[in-house]
Amino acid sequence: MQVTLKLFASLTPFLPAGAERNAAQIEVADGTTILSLLDSYNVPREHCHLVMLNGVYHAPEARGSVPVSDGDHLAVWPPVAGG
């Protein structure tokens, strides 16, 4: 299945080749969780601060059990803020 992986700010370098503007279409196997997906792209767990699946935040403790589905958008940021 296809998932859009978006890595922002200092995490951008972890995107696979061919990514455009912080986003890449990636192929994932059924049963992939948020955590296993991020691990497979070597995104350091300690820098995965804001993790939003389709815009909804998932806390660190839930990331290992929430599966991603076809067409999902997974967006991740290190600790950031603004105003």
């Binding site: 200092s10 939003m52 967006a75 290190p78 600790p79 803020a81 603004g82 105003g83």
Partner: peptide
Amino acid sequence: DNAVTGQGLPAFGTQVLMNVINEAG
């Protein structure tokens, strides 16, 4: 030592929120 004030804000500024808030709808 704080990741936001020590790295996030100086590197990306407040504008880093553009994608965050957009993603959050």
